[in-house]
Amino acid sequence: MDSQRTLYDEVVRVTHVYLGPAADRFIDRQVQNHLHKAPRELSQSDLDRLIDWIRAAMSLLTEDSEIVEEYTRQLERLTRKSSSEGA
């Protein structure tokens, strides 16, 4: 992961593939409304819970389960990536 990039930036980058220009607003809402913190304060320990909320939100936007699965897999990769970097 680029050292300049925060976890929030990475999550938005992945989301951009699915929600385009709405990506940052979507992630901001999920973090603020469900994790009750500022989006930029998103940390590694929040990621699992955030993915659960994103999965629920995405299932309201599309019936295509493949898209939802592919998206959450990309996000889960960030979890693994961050933990391997931490180790």
């Binding site: 699915y18 929600l19 385009g20 220009p21 709405a22 990506a23 936007l61 599309t62 898209i67």
Partner: peptide, 8 residues
């Protein structure tokens, strides 16, 4: 040209 499968 815009990115985002669902947005598009």
């Amino acid at each position: 040209k815009v990115k985002g499968v669902l947005y598009q």
